[in-house]
Write a protein that binds this DNA or RNA. Sequence first.
RNA 1: GGUCUAGUAGCUCAGUUGGAUUAGAGCAACGGCCUUCUAAGCCGUAGGUCCCAGGUUCGAGCCCUGGCUAGAUCACCA
Length: 593
Amino acid sequence: MRKRIREIVVEAVEVLYGQKIDLKIVQIQRTRKDFTGDLTIVVFPFVKLAKKKPEDCANDIGLYIKNNLEQLSSYNVIKGFLNLSFTSEYWLERLGNIHKSFDGNAPVDQPEKIMVEFSSPNTNKPLHLGHVRNNLIGDSVSRILKAAGHDVMRVNLVNDRGIHICKSMQAYLDFDSDGSPDKAGMKGDKYVGDLYVKFDQQYKGQVADLIESGMSEDDAKQKAPIMQAAKTMLQKWEAGDEEVHALWEKMNAWVYEGFDRTYEKMGIEFEKTYYESNTYKSGREIVLNGLEKGVFYKREDGSVWADLTDAKLDEKIVLRADGTSLYMTQDIGTAVERFENQQLDRHIYVVGNEQNYHFQVLKLILGRLGYPWAEKIQHMSYGMVELPEGKMKSREGKVVDADDLIDDMIQTSSDMSKELGKLESLSDDEQYNVHKMIALGALKYFMLKVDPKKNMIFNPKESIDFNGHTGPFIQYTHARIRSVVRKAKAMNINVPTSVAEDTKMNDKELDLIKYIDQFEIVIQEAAEELDPGMIANYAYDLAKDFNHYYHDYSILKAQDGKLLQFRLFLADQVSKNLKFAMKLLGIDVPEIM
RNA sequence: GGUCUAGUAGCUCAGUUGGAUUAGAGCAACGGCCUUCUAAGCCGUAGGUCCCAGGUUCGAGCCCUGGCUAGAUCACCA
């Protein structure tokens, strides 16, 4: 409809004022609540062309549209705003079409093949709330892009090598050398994470002792025996030492088992998992090649650098003096490999905003190396999750653990539910599933409703809400509608497959239809902006509107059968849209709660 | 010091190509509504110098400039 109106406006301006204008300068927006109308055209851009007052200009165009669009019922003009209202037949037809064919997808004209990399954990510590935000954003963005018709491939890049893993390994040898998660009765990732904390405690103790015995702080940090041991272990690992590799594989396997359980609980999946131990050497050839082409330069010590001072990005090292790869080198290598092997149109990296600089540099370097797709890498930067006292620190145990948080929330959800006592007809398993669905709904919605790029503060002492602007609010609205549909069925009234053209609607019903109609645009905008928050807000607004309606009008006690059928039809579509919207956030909705 | 990001109600946040007298939600506070389709709901009251100062224009919370505050980053760590 918007497209048609644009075309008619362009036509109108040409006929009325003899001026050709571009489709894009026709501004169409939803009419604000306090004014009459469905869509609004802003006529200020045409005022100069028309050489008329805004009001007159709007009236001219309004009349032209009225004569050329049968679905238009009326128009009104306030200042430079032309408000258009459509006939109720038009809206009923829209609702009917949506009900018949809308499946939660809104494909764009030009679908792309997009790889989304997210999660990317280290194997020395369990997942915490920061990872949860990353996972949820990555998951939701992938779902939204898919709904917008793109071919999406979700991948995880596990950082499974380096000094941090060696620290956990060293602590294992020193403190629990024949232990295991089973013996300790712990999840594998927790067990290894605890060893990492133990390493840090031991290390700090040793440093303190050395300083006491007269050593400088810098020296003490270098010479602490446990750190030395960890470094030696890393060298052995790099040299392919069998014993070290065996231990490394054993401990990583524990961690993966733990991660898998957490991912499963959160409902997160990947098409492919990459491991850094396989890719950490890549990119070296490409850099050497770039050196020949003069994109990089070599310093006296043999290290290779990119001079980005002309782009205000300083100088960046891309290869060590000993010729080995760095983080940047690897990312250059994997990007090239992925674009060339997978024929990607776009690559999105869901990575915290602390790495904004890294990705700016990566993009710039790839461009200078002459890759035409350099502009197609996109850093989906999101803000940190902080505690009231500041950043989370795994080493000091100051973290909100993902599993603990989810379990706590399931407990809360279960307590609340039992108090309300609405699930008594269900089996224990079914009840648990609903409790879990609601807990995850609250957590996911909480993290996804806010703008991803902003930092957020999480106070563990204040539990995440289940009332108000929350996931459970929307889940509840859905469950209420499903309950009505069930009751109707029990009365032998099924949701009809179409609506009568001459149904008499009230304003709230009309508003709901307009809101339902809005969803496809919202999906496409959210995909464009990579912003799950837009979907979250849409679902909330729709649920809120429906709750007003539900409060004011009875569906099952409508005045006559025809109206009852229409209301059921409308409510059913609201529940579908809520379900689709929540699915895009990775949230399931219950039939009862 | 350079670069980047953010600053909206007591708290958490919406407000996206700049739009329409009175800047919206939720939480917390206060007051109402359950013999009527699920009260995890609905209605109402109260709460604001949209960080500050200039500028651009028909119009600025949004754009530009300068400042203030907070954070990130500029490593032969990833």
